[in-house]
Amino acid sequence: MIEVDRLSKTFHVYRKPPGLLGSLKSLVKRERVEKRAVKDVSFRIGEGEIVGLLGANGAGKTTLTKMLAGIIHPTAGDADVLGYRPWERDDRFRRQIALVMGQKAQLWWDLPAADSFLLLKEIYRIPDATYRENLAYLTSVLGIEKELTIQLRRLSLGERMKMELIATLLHGPRVVYLDEPTIGLDLTAQRAIRNFILAYREENRPAMLLTSHYMEDIQRLCKRILILRDGELVYDGSLARVVERYATHKVVTVHLRRDGKDCPTPQTVGDLGEIVSLDPDTLKLRVPRGEVADAAAALLSRCSVADLLIEEADVGDIIESILTARGESVS
């Protein structure tokens, strides 16, 4: 559905020195600088796949998404989405894709969402019966039927984002780009949107490319991730493999029983791993993956243990370490 071949995008930006003198100088002459936002990126996404696109701010995620939605032209490389080159903006292509940009409202601010949806019905030429059916399904799943006739600007952020999602999916797109769909939402709204995206995927099998800074979004929705670093694709593979490859440690948490036995101290347990925290009730250790079983056995013999928990390191921390590791290759 989506095939990307060595796609690159270079922007030209102007530098302006600070201060009044800088402003005066820039009226006459400006320094033009090239910024390579995306560099030789290649990947494929198939039907029914939700792929997470990760990267630090400025890594090129949104630029890549905009190229694949046909909004901006690439500097080099090619892409094929549903058999079309996106930036040629064939209407048949645009009828089959959708873009949600969490940081930018797509709907009309002064209109009730119902009016915007009717306009979208005309734009996408959705037959009456399909429109009614899709709208009823989407509003009921997101629980937002009553808000349809309220002016968009009077809705909460969560309600607006739900309306944006409905607007995006009304025409039943086969490819969906989701750029920060849960940004700024509270936990309940985030969860509702995630559940909705999963339900929509099951029902319609679109290809989805999801950009999010919330690891919870990625963990819940994506089995596969792409990691961009300074515009380059440094990882394309399963989320699980990243954890196996890069989580060198596990976290062992021990809940202690207060039954008169000596409490553990850095001297008695420090040899088992790095102590993350230690108080009379709980001990948390960071233990190398290969030594977890021995460490757990030692803890059970040395301390009075009420409960013991072994967890993978936080996925967000792992990804962050990859994103910030300059120049290192990722396999």
């Binding site: 905009k66 939605a69 046909g70 909004i71 903006r89 209407d91 048949r92 645009r94 009828r95 894709i97 959708a98 873009l99 940009m101 930018k104 797509q106 734009i123 996408y124």
Partner: peptide, 11 residues
């Protein structure tokens, strides 16, 4: 950047 919305529309 409001143009983004219109460029995605098939019109």
């Amino acid at each position: 950047g409001g143009l983004n919305r219109y460029l995605v529309f098939p019109t």
